[in-house]
């Protein structure tokens, strides 16, 4: 059943709906347009999943969060007020909040949590050094996982999801200056974490000085 639906989803024509904005498609979805539902699922699901996976570092959990966020979108669709917010901004905010809730639950369960460390820049890069396969993407994911929640969210939204600072401010419900601060601190922390792995990550020693 699922595989059949997936094949159908990938092969069925999408008419000319792919040029329409998320907001227009959501309005059509609310009117019962099944083509709009397909386009929205194809367009939004991978993005939401990718963002959740970056924040959580766990694929299964990320799928749960992405599914929950999309379910909330479908439920609010009939009451969606055009022009009030972008669909993606709203979705990313929901994912961010869901992930934050899960992190808090993790912290309650764990005796100690990395997020409670005072400042990641102080952390030794030993955690990354334990990686058996020092793939750059894996190293980045591992480093991102060590950032405090808000820094990780800001860095991922800005540098991986490609959002603008005002968009991130809307998603995180903070000011633009706070976004800039979180992003800068997050990048400094990433640099500190990854620096010890520079050679393992395959960067050349062009910086060597005689």
């Amino acid at each position: 059943m699922l595989a059949g639906n997936a094949r159908l989803l990938m092969t069925m024509p999408l008419d000319d709906l792919t040029d329409l904005s998320d907001e227009v498609l959501l309005a059509r979805y609310a009117q019962g347009d099944r083509s709009a539902a397909r386009v929205l699922v194809l367009r939004l699901s991978p993005r939401v999943l990718g963002y959740a996976a970056r924040l959580l570092g766990d694929r299964a959990e990320a799928e749960d969060v992405a599914q929950e966020a999309l379910v909330r979108l479908w439920k609010i669709a009939p009451d969606w007020r055009a022009g009030e917010a972008q669909v993606t901004t709203w979705l990313y905010r929901v994912v961010t909040n869901l992930v934050t809730d899960r992190h808090r639950a993790r912290q309650r369960r764990a005796a100690t949590a990395l997020d409670e460390a005072p400042e990641v820049a102080d952390a030794t890069p030993g955690a990354v050094a334990q990686m058996i396969e020092a793939d750059r993407m894996a190293a980045l994911d591992t480093a991102l996982a060590q950032l405090p929640d808000r820094q990780r969210q800001a860095v991922v939204l800005r540098h991986i999801e490609g959002m603008t600072n005002p968009e991130i401010a809307a998603i995180m419900e903070i000011g633009v200056e706070a976004v800039e601060s979180l992003t800068a601190r997050g990048k400094r922390a990433l640099t500190a974490i990854l620096s010890g792995q520079r050679a393992a990550l395959g960067y050349e020693d062009e910086g060597a000085e005689a």
């Binding site: 059943m1 699922l2 595989a3 059949g4 639906n5 997936a6 094949r7 989803l9 990938m10 979805y29 609310a30 019962g32 099944r34 539902a37 397909r38 929205l40 699922v41 194809l42 699901s45 999943l49 799928e63 992405a66 599914q67 999309l70 379910v71 479908w74 439920k75 669709a77």
Partner: peptide
Amino acid sequence: SDFMARMLEDAYALQ
């Protein structure tokens, strides 16, 4: 594809 199919089923079910 399983994940995408689940997302589509949700979308249809709640539409």
